[in-house]
Every structure is written in C-alpha cells, then in structure tokens.
Amino acid sequence: MTLPVRAIAALVSLALLGGCDGVQSVLSPGGRDAQVIATLFWWMLGGAVILWLLMNGLLVYVTRIDQRAMSQRTAEALIIGGGIVFPTVVLAGLLAFALSEMPRQRDPGTGLTVRVTGESWWWRVEYLKDGATAAVVSANEIRLPAHQRSEITLNAHRVIHSFWIPALGGKTDMIPGRETRMSLEPTRAGEFRGQCTEFCGESHALMAFGAVVMEPEAFDAWLAKEAEPAAPPEGEAARRGQAIFNAEGCGACHAIRGTAATGRVGPDLTHLGGRVSLAAGILPMTEDALIRWIRDPEAVKPGARMPAYDHLGDGDLAALAAYLEGLT
C-alpha cells in the first residue's frame, strides 16, 4: 500500500502548493459565512486525515505486519469504542456547531435588498435600498457593500437555478413559483465570481456573473449612478450604433433607460459598459467580445435565446459595440 499512499501524499501536497486561491474559491473567503466554513473545513480535514490514517493503519497492521490473533476483548472494545462512543461524541459536537451556525448565516439583511431572478442563462438583478421606492434594475453582475449583511431574494423564471458566490457564502436555489432568500456579509472589497450551480439546461456551464464587493461609500455612489438613465451616446460611431440598435429592434427585448428601448425579455443594458463581464460572466467587456456575441450568440452560448445578427456588416457591428460599451 506504500505506493498509492505516497502518490496520495504527493497529490495532497501538490494541491496545497497549488493553492486554494481563485476568484471562485471557498477556501479564499471574502465574507463572514465563507470564512467560518473555510475554518470549519480545515479543522474537519485535519480530523478526517487522522481518523483515516488510524483506521487504515490498523487494517494494514493486522493484515500485513502482525497477523497474529489478538484477544477478542480488544476487538469488541474497538467496536463499542470506535463504533458507538467516539462517533456519538464527535458527531454531536459537530452537529451542535452546525446547527447554531445555520440561523446565523440566514440572518436578515440590514439596509440593502438585492432581488435576483434566474433566467436562461443570465441573471436579472434589482437593487432596493431600505426606504427606496423603486428598484434599480441591472443584470449579470452583483455588487454588494462590504461590512454589512445584505438581503438577497431569489426567483427563477422558467427552470430551477442556484445562486452562489463561493468567496462570500453558501448557495441557495432559485425555484419557479417560490421565492427563496439568503443573506451575505462580505468582509473585504474585491472582485469575485459567482456561478449557477443547479443544472438548468444546455448552457448551464455558461451562466456565471461577476461579484464585486465595494466599500460602503463607493457602493452608494455606484448605486446612485446605476439608478440614472443612460448617458446619450458620444462620438460618431456610438451614435450610429444607437441608430442600428433601434433599427434592428433590439429594444423589443432589452431596456436602456432614458431611450425608447424598454424590452423586459433580455437583460437590462442601461449601464452595460460599466460591468466587468459580458453574457453572464463568460466574456470580457470589450468591443471584440461584444461583436462576437452580437454576431452569433449561439456560437458563444449554445441555446441562447438571442437571435444572431450576422447579417450586419463588420462596420455596423463595431458601431453597435461602441454604443453599448459606452453605456457606462
């Protein structure tokens, strides 16, 4: 058994060296809940490794190293001690910790409510500050203020999705016909990544989003700006882009507040250019990516509802992209 043990040991150390960081990592927390769970995990991992070594060490010892029969009393003590007493105590402790942690992670938010609706395969996002009368509509990106717990209410349009930002905390499913909720308490500013974790059809793999945690003042400023209508296009190309946008009927599905485009079927584009990513977290927010997406969404995201605009020439697409990118 030495060979695989060594192989496993090598893999484990490789994994540890490789690091647990990443924008979507449970083990590189940026929120209170994720921090608690990461700590819990390291403790449990340590315990598990010790128990595994004891159990299998014993097995190797009695089958390979010393095969002499031992007393039945020892063996029976092992069943009672290892099978009943020890696990009952350890499991009761773990359970007590988990049970008391559960309601804490579900505490109601203070101040901000973010309503997220799962669509195929993107996210409709609405921000509602305490006392505000109207929600600020956005899409495909979640911004949260640091150092406070925000309430997140979850809905789904056609099928079940699941909302998860690993660095901040656990996930909750979004279920058609029900409203579920969760809350998150980020502890540091930074850019993270979230992703849909309930299989939701063909492009489930391509349903992610950027998650940006900001200092509270910066967040308030951002939200105030996000609430404003879109700025008029600047520059020749962008103006032409807006004309194409209107002529192609994009407004039937997409809304750009402050213009004639008021569609509700697709994502709100009012401040599209200000987001960190495009097409629900799968493309960078660049002109090239915008062109690629508009020309043939199907090629980027199989099954996407948006039709292809491959009849538009390169120039038209570039103008459209310039207009959209300018919507910061």
Binding site: T88, L99, S100, P103, R106, D107
Partner: peptide, 22 residues
Amino acid sequence: ALVSLIGVLFNASPALFISSCV
C-alpha cells in the same frame, strides 16, 4: 433501541439550537 435512542436525541437537537422558522 440504543441506536434509535441516539437517533431520536440527534433528531431533537435542532430544536435546542434553532429558535425560528428562518
């Protein structure tokens, strides 16, 4: 009976730690 007793006690424990329907 012993294992069932442990099971029942475990199953009742959430009521000790959780005081709301959240």
